[in-house]
Write a protein that binds this DNA or RNA. Structure first.
Lengths: 204, 204
DNA sequence: TTGACACCAGAACGTTCGTTCTCTACCATG
DNA sequence: CATGGTAGAGAACGAACGTTCTGGTGTCAA
């Protein structure tokens, strides 16, 4: 049983070539076209063979299908020969440019684009959490959070970034800087969103 | 760079909502489905109206077509709203469009894709610079750096992230953690690249 | 010499797709 | 009360699509 025996190595030698052509096409158009167009891309004339190729690439884990039956690339599709952190004495500055990097950061930080906002960080009240003035907070908008989350709350009509805590049954906002006081809101606490990522850009 | 200022305001007010739904769908499936499926995504029942919406989004520059007629996203599709610290008392979770700035994370951090590498940070030797274990360093590969830059150097066949300093005419690597020693390389110092950005992802 | 198999072409077929057209309900505005 | 624009529903249709089947090479080993 268990016939997932050959995940990475493609079963057919020419499949590597077809995969390369598909990757090139995808880099240009960011989509996998119809079987008919793939005939041109692959340089073959029969749709049935295109289907066989895609089925194999799917089985090998490079592409998968949406519920609609459309082919989409997997993470493995974008993997490239990657020099790990060994020696690398010769400084291979050029190497492969190619595709794939484009969405990676985005995809890593953002689950739900429509709920995600960037907010620049002002001040140093969270500096002990490694959040500096000028950093950019990636915030997912929602009004519920767990104790211990870093949240964006609305205090005095302004955004403030603090750790959500609880004290005697009431929510409090804890800075990560001993020079700042704990905020104990009277009344309800209005939470704008939860910190899901952080971005910092160093001047060039 | 990136001066696409005008085409943001969509012609129809509800288009912002449809765009958000499309962005969320794309974040999950990395493709734009058929009109029939978009009916479900958008919550409407007529394909003709879906087409009208996509035509408007295409005219506004968020999506475009391949030679095969497939819809694919443009760069603008991935732009994120950048919330300035205004008021926003009423928690308008859905609106998201129109006001504020937009930017694209990848473009902000990466100038030269072919020279840019991501390296996960290990250890806490730079913690006083707000660089934590598990953060991801965005590194631009080059072998020249200025004093004061945070650089990735190759020491003992391993990457290390430190601030570049100078001491008596020789380069040194300064950690940002008083518990770690300054590194004074004998011979030449091999610099892999310069830190240009930092990314942190908080667990959900 | 004969299978067996990988590789591919080509056609058939039922389904789905995108497009276009007509129609409706609902505001507004005047 | 007419008008016009918006926001959609729904049907119709030909073209395109994915799938399956059959058939035809070439190669290699038995």
């Amino acid at each position: 049983m268990t016939d997932f025996d050959t995940p990475l190595p493609e079963s057919n030698p020419k499949d590597a070539e077809y995969l390369a052509k598909l990757q090139d096409y995808y880099a240009e158009w960011k989509s996998i076209p119809s079987y008919a167009s793939l005939c041109e891309v692959f340089g073959i004339a029969s749709k049935s063979w295109v289907k066989a190729i895609l089925d194999r690439l799917g089985k090998a884990g490079f592409i998968e299908r949406t519920p609609d039956g459309m082919w989409i690339p997997t993470r493995q599709f974008f993997a490239r020969p990657f020099a790990e952190s060994s020696v690398q004495a010769g400084m291979p500055v050029s190497v492969s440019a190619t595709q794939g990097d484009y969405f990676i950061i985005d995809e890593m930080l953002i689950d739900t684009p429509s709920l995600t906002t960037m907010i620049p960080v002002k001040g140093d009240s969270m500096i002990e959490a490694g959040i500096h003035d000028g950093d950019i907070a990636v915030v997912e908008k929602r009004n519920l959070a767990n104790v211990g989350d870093i949240v964006v709350a609305i205090v005095d009509n302004d955004f403030t970034l603090k750790t959500l805590g609880k004290e005697g049954g009431r929510f409090i906002l804890r800075p990560a800087n001993s020079a700042y006081p704990v905020i104990r809101p009277q009344g309800s606490l209005e939470i704008f969103g939860v910190l899901v990522g952080l971005i910092r850009k160093y001047r060039k």
